[in-house]
Design a protein around this nucleic acid. Structure first.
Lengths: 136, 136
DNA sequence: TTTTAAATAATAATGATTACGATTTACACA
DNA sequence: TGTGTAAATCGTAATCATTATTATTTAAAA
């Protein structure tokens, strides 16, 4: 997903176009990777020295709600990335050095079969961690 | 794994048998589920009013190190459970109501094939969340 | 029993996240 | 193009999980 599409999606959901939101999105668009709130704060403060964590967190969660972003928990901190958009449900390999991600198309839920008869599945998490080709 | 085996394993690794450690283990042994540090603190303080978080965390991480416990991150908090012990590598279904878990024997890494050619895999996480039969 | 390193207790510090009242801003509409 | 208003942001403080520190206590080896 790109910044323009994301802003469009914000408008569709009744949210305003602010320069802070656009800047947050442009930071997320720089790399296919998960960002922590503090990473985004640090970068955005070059342009908007007065943004607070409130603004960062409020918008990250908002954009995750309307499926502009994907969220996950890494090392005890929430991380966010632009949704891949082009394809549907998928998972990620995450490089523990540079943070870049690679989409994994196979989903383990497809193979589960009878393992969970009687269980009502609501959600799942599958992530692979390691070194990408550039870092290994 | 049971409490006796766990204490045995602590000794094998050169760690002492303390009543706090035994009590922590007995709490973890009550249910096949992941516990947060504060859950364990709350229960243990009935017997040992003076235990501090330091003791809880130090021992949980220690016991995870020697593979007595399994650890995972749920809702932004570290959680721990007794290792299943009986079988090797596996994953869990986790009930979002009662917290009980069910082991899943299939591991998605087996099916990955060529998806990660050139990537150096170090770790992975696969968890399924939902309602167990009793809660659904 | 004595000794001593390991473990615990009590408390403070840190760091991520959330909360909140005051101020500013996007934008619908005149 | 102005104006009103709800939404968004700012500045700052509070909260909560986790980690650190130092003094005291304890398990267990000799």
């Amino acid at each position: 997903m790109n910044v323009k599409t994301a802003i469009q999606k914000l408008k569709e959901n009744g949210y305003k176009h602010t320069k802070q939101r656009e800047r947050i999105l442009s930071i997320l668009a720089e790399q296919e990777q998960y960002f922590a709130a503090k990473d985004i704060l640090k970068e955005i403060q070059a342009d908007f020295p007065s943004v607070s964590y409130d603004t960062i967190y409020r918008n990250l969660y908002l954009m995750a709600d309307v499926e502009i972003l994907e969220a996950t928990e890494l090392d005890g901190e929430k991380h966010f990335r632009l949704g891949c958009g082009t394809h549907g449900h998928h998972h990620h390999f995450i490089c523990t050095d540079c943070g870049k991600t690679k989409s994994i198309e196979t989903c383990p839920m497809d193979e589960l079969g009878e393992d969970l008869r009687g269980y009502q599945v609501e959600n799942h998490k599958f992530e692979i961690y390691g070194k990408c080709p550039a870092c290994s």
